[in-house]
Nucleic acid binder design. Structure first.
Lengths: 252, 252
DNA sequence: TTAGTATAATTGATATGACCACTTTAAATA
DNA sequence: TATTTAAAGTGGTCATATCAATTATACTAA
């Protein structure tokens, strides 16, 4: 039975699609102001509440930005829009970025520590190879490949720690975060100082592991990520400190 | 001109951020329903309009889905993207239990460290309550309940660390490890010495956190798990690998 | 009892109006 | 002319009422 699948898309979604299409087809150009809300309401013949939920969705998708008392303005659409909602979330929220780095400090520091104690000869050969791969591609203005090489090096170290759960965890965290690493490298690809420093840190980390100095290896891994955190160029928006009461949001 | 850094985060963004972090850190159960809008409004003390613009943003980012007349439901965004393979592994092969303890030393040590630095008064109240719950049930020959109480205490500490991804990991790891903890408690439930020692360690851990001594809190968490490992009665090869003190791990 | 149906309660979607907070503009003042 | 002040413009929040879809409940019939 072919029920003709009526698409009663609700008012809000209709507004979103409408404005979206106007943005993409060039009716609105980046930087241009939308009509004031009270005027848009008349044009679209919808309530202001519905319009505002639609504008909120557009803002969430990075298509517009809003300033109280100012207006709604069209953003540059080429913005980095991650398909993974989780990545999108982390990327939008500078707090989460720092938190993720803290997590990596814990995990990768631990991996470096045990790798220094347990790495076999074969492990060391692999680590050395990954280090050389990374150094070959570093500073070559290909952040995507460099991010992958970076990942491979850290995975090799994780493997050398001979702790399977730890390795799995690091691998999964990394596959999710590789886009963020790529972003970091892109921001700093023209900064010779940062590039050199990162490579020095990698070398020192590997050296400490080869020497079996677990404490030092862990410290280097920790400091390395602190450096990454501090060299985030930060197009970061408001570091909106979180607030208070909002609790018990979920059912049962 | 003092910059004075405007911290006026608007109501809508506060709601979004609050719900986002709860979704990411796993406070929700995937597919779980949010409270109805009218109830949420009372909980959060905001207007329905503000709430709905926030929900609209969350929907746009793929974090929730909504059905008219039905409710708002959390999507499986972070559904164990980090931990799924790990959980399968641990479930399948309990032989990793010692490696898992190493992993826990890293994660829970980190959580204790940051909890000592960041715990709010409310966090401390919660931690204290969970500690008392655990002490009430400890040694009562009910390993299942005790394991759950143990989990709740460590989750409260993880929450106090205010690192959402870390909380997510610990929560997910724990939900699988609870059987392991239960096993440990069952084996030793008649051993007064071990029981007392575990409770003393818990008290010391909480005390260090309350005093804001992050380094000591981390060390206690680390030693606590070393003790758990060593008091596992059974077979497994003695992982004599260092149980070295963690002293001066990090500068910070 | 069981299945189906009709009714009521629940819940999200929309609309309207008012008021607040910030921004922009324009008028008033020095 | 430059600065200050007032007013208008505009997004943000709140409150209330109503519509529309879903879910829960009670009722009827087999």
């Amino acid at each position: 039975m072919s029920i003709s699948r009526i698409h009663t898309l609700n008012v809000t979604d209709a507004i979103v699609k409408k404005i979206e299409s106007m943005i993409v087809d060039g009716t609105y150009i980046p930087g241009q102001a939308l009509l004031p809300e009270r005027q848009l309401v008349k044009e679209l013949k919808v309530s202001r509440a519905s319009l505002r939920t639609a504008l909120s969705a557009l803002k969430a998708n990075g298509l517009i930005r809003s300033r109280q008392g100012g207006g709604h303005y069209v953003c540059d659409v080429a913005k980095n829009t991650f398909t993974d909602p989780l990545l999108n979330l982390i990327n939008r929220n500078i707090d989460f970025k720092f938190q993720v780095i803290e997590l990596r400090q814990s995990l990768e520091g631990t991996a470096a520590f045990y790798a220094a104690q347990r790495a076999t000869e074969q492990d060391k050969i692999t680590i050395q190879a990954r280090l050389e791969d990374l150094q070959k591609i570093a500073g070559k203005n290909s952040p995507k490949e460099e991010a992958e090489a970076d990942l491979e090096l850290h995975l090799a170290i994780a493997n050398a720690a001979h702790n399977t759960p730890l390795t799995l965890l690091i691998r999964n965290v990394y596959t999710v975060l590789i886009k963020l690493i790529e972003e970091h490298l892109s921001q700093n690809q023209h900064d010779e100082t940062i590039n050199n420093q990162l490579q020095i840190q990698h070398s020192e980390l590997v050296e400490a592991i080869f020497l079996g100095d677990g404490v030092r290896a862990r410290q280097i891994a920790y400091d390395h990520l602190s450096y990454v955190r501090d060299s985030f160029g930060d197009s970061c928006f408001t570091d909106n400190q979180n607030s208070e009461p909002l609790e018990n949001l979920f059912d049962q």
